[in-house]
Amino acid sequence: MTDRAMTDRATSMLRAAPADTAGLRERLARDAEREGLVDVLFRAVDSPIGALVLAATGRGLVYVAFEVEDERAVLDMLASRIGPRVLRAQGRSRALDAAAAQIDEYLTGRRREFDLPLDTRLATGFRGEVQRHLTEVAYGRTATYKQLAAGLDRPGAVRAVGTACATNPLPLVWPCHRILRTDGGLGGYRGGLEAKRRLLAMESAG
């Protein structure tokens, strides 16, 4: 073997040495949260409607992403709209534990309403107004985009209400899945229509 090849072999062994950082990343998230160094903590969780990404700031839950969304695009959005100190907290985290527990309870039929600190900074303008209004539609009930627009004294804003539902930063917690078309059609859902169908079926069964 040539000298050069042996050098490459020695250095590539070094570069390929195992380096599992999972435990260290949990410790980093804990230390960073304790020292107030994070803009956003996030965690991936499994659920009956597919993997979810939960994101929280020091103020509370700020964004829920579905499996159909590109995680990297979601993190880029959070970094640009909230701040670049975005960190994964797969272990324990004050900001995320309660949200993860309540969403799990809800999706497994053990909870009907959420009682969580929320960071609503991604719900801005008229869309934000619509999104905050979503909790008026109770568990097991549905409303139409048109009814929601009328309820906000903006009967002509049906399309804008649809857009507000589609861009709801806190789905599940703010139940945009309960909003349907006037003709009974499902309308849209950021998490995909299959997820919307399953949520509605779960709620009407309970």
Partner: peptide
């Protein structure tokens, strides 16, 4: 930097750990 910090941990964390272990 405007990019999410976590991407740097994901991408460079193992290299930095090898450096720390070597030192």
């Amino acid at each position: 930097m405007r990019a999410p910090f976590d991407a740097a941990v994901e991408r460079h964390g193992p290299t930095v750990l090898r450096v720390c272990r070597a030192v």
